[in-house]
Amino acid sequence: MTWYHHLRPSFRRPTWWDVLHYGTRAVQGIGIVWVIQNYVVDMRSCIGASMLPTLRAEGTWVLISRYPPALRPPSLKIGDLVSAQSPVRPDREVCKRVIGLPGDTVCVDPVGAARGHGGWEDGAGGREHVVVPKGHVWVAGDNMSGSIDSRMFGPISLALIRGKVFYRLLPNPGPLENALHELDIDDDD
């Protein structure tokens, strides 16, 4: 008779078999959670000023889709928010917007926020253009003066794209939709 029997008289001291059983279940549960976080959906807080009008700098809780087929070009479209492994910082995952897909021609620095690419500070507005190579994407932050992105390190491989950011949880919950719509300027309709 120990103190906890006043709280739960039916309590039985766990045997080593119990410890083994629940420990096994805990390990299996960790595995299931890891698989869901890495192949289905993950919840993260994006911290930093690089996506400022879209995501606030102090941290926004978002849902990231990790479903692998959604991260390749037919379903990955220009204007999607993606989370990618940084090619220049170890252990860092960054949230950026897809600007160019393989084969597209991209203006490196249209507003001259990052110097040295022929932006307005260098004289003329954004003269340097590159073609995004096969298997790569061009990513950039929405806050062009406070973002380290493809303007600095060039196009990144699609293998570094780890997820698609599709829902904002906190604050101001709502879907983060692709705000880019194709203009229909055909004459015949």
């Binding site: 390990v27 299996q28 960790i30 595995g31 299931i32 890891w34 698989v35």
Partner: peptide, 9 residues
Amino acid sequence: LLWVPFGMM
């Protein structure tokens, strides 16, 4: 089957 996710991890 419960061990499969842990194996993947």
